[in-house]
């Protein structure tokens, strides 16, 4: 029970990071972006590449911060991966979404996003192979926090939780303490009025893709660090991040954060009674439950 909750919190933190950008993009551009979760995979693989590069160029960077398996090389690689992933999101928008946005309806955007997801996932497969990979081959020993009830946790997991919370806290400060943050919130609430108030919409769209891409990359790295990395990483997170945005209410950043934890913990608890094969379906059950009880989510407004 406790173990399930702790594991759920860890997964939840990763889902939350992924869902923040998605909820903003979905709200601002008004379409369900099924390619979004592929940003997690892009980020995780970008970090893999740069980790190897840094470790190769400067072997000193390749020692782990004990007891973590995280190395300085990977930490640096993650930061670069965040930038690269944000830039990829912007480029994909320019190449595909922006052009479709200009002439077609939102439904075509959803449709295109599925196509983009398929392309990204399989290009990653072609480049990196089907096989699961790890950042570090060091064995990460779990620490026994308690024997009764049994509670195991790996140092990397603690790091991931702290780092994820730190990133979310930072973004919260940006949203609530800077005029850039006000502008983001203004565009989310009323794009036309935001423009009239001097906010350039295209710049905000770019900013949201950059932020969403960056946070997603971190989420991807964090997942890969505590589990493993494979081309289906993004696809596996797709339904959970959507569930988090729906639970929180589309457009609500704080809702997405809370939604991520709810989805993580609820899935963890459900799997105590259900076989683990049903794990992929859990977010769907949560989505149905929310649609039944509170269709606009915890913090969402009526956008029907």
């Amino acid at each position: 029970m406790i173990q399930s909750i702790v594991d759920g919190i860890l997964t939840g933190a990763i889902i939350s990071l992924g869902a923040i950008g998605l909820t903003m993009v979905m709200h601002m551009l008004r379409f369900a972006n099924f390619a979004y979760a592929e940003l997690l995979a892009i980020g995780a693989y970008a970090a893999l590449v740069f980790d190897a590069l840094f470790a190769g160029l400067l072997p000193v960077l390749d020692t782990a911060f004990k007891p973590l398996t995280l190395t300085a090389a990977l930490a640096l690689a993650t930061i670069i991966a965040m930038v690269i992933t944000g830039a990829s999101a912007v480029v994909i928008d320019w190449l595909v979404f922006k052009r479709i946005r200009a002439k077609a309806d939102a439904l075509s955007m959803v449709f295109a996003s599925f196509g983009v997801a398929l392309i990204v996932r399989n290009v990653l497969t072609l480049i990196f192979g089907h096989k699961a990979q790890l950042y570090s081959n060091d064995i990460a020993f779990a620490v026994v926090l308690s024997r009764d009830p049994l509670l195991l946790i790996k140092p990397d997991q603690v790091f991931v939780l702290v780092a994820a919370l730190a990133l979310m806290g930072l973004f919260h400060l940006v949203l609530t303490r800077t005029t850039f943050g006000y502008a983001l919130r203004a565009v989310a609430e009323n794009p036309a009025l935001a423009q009239v108030s001097g906010v350039r919409l295209s710049a905000m769209i770019t900013a949201v893709w950059m932020i969403g891409g960056g946070l997603s990359a971190a989420a991807g790295v964090f997942y890969a660090l505590t589990n493993h990395l494979s081309p289906v990483l993004g696809h596996n997170f797709l339904l959970p991040v959507f569930a988090a945005t729906i639970v929180g209410g589309i457009g609500s950043v704080h809702g997405a954060v809370l939604g991520g934890f709810i989805v993580g913990i609820a899935s963890g608890l459900a799997l105590m009674v259900l076989p683990s094969g049903y794990a992929p379906a859990m977010p769907f059950v949560i989505i149905l439950a929310v649609l039944l009880v509170r269709p606009h989510g915890l913090f969402g407004e009526d956008h029907s």
């Binding site: 006000y182 919130r185 609430e189 001097g198």
Partner: peptide, 13 residues
């Protein structure tokens, strides 16, 4: 902007 505070509305502009 209903979700922004009064100060934030003005500061945004």
């Amino acid at each position: 902007f209903r979700h922004l505070s009064i100060r934030e509305n003005l500061a945004l502009v």
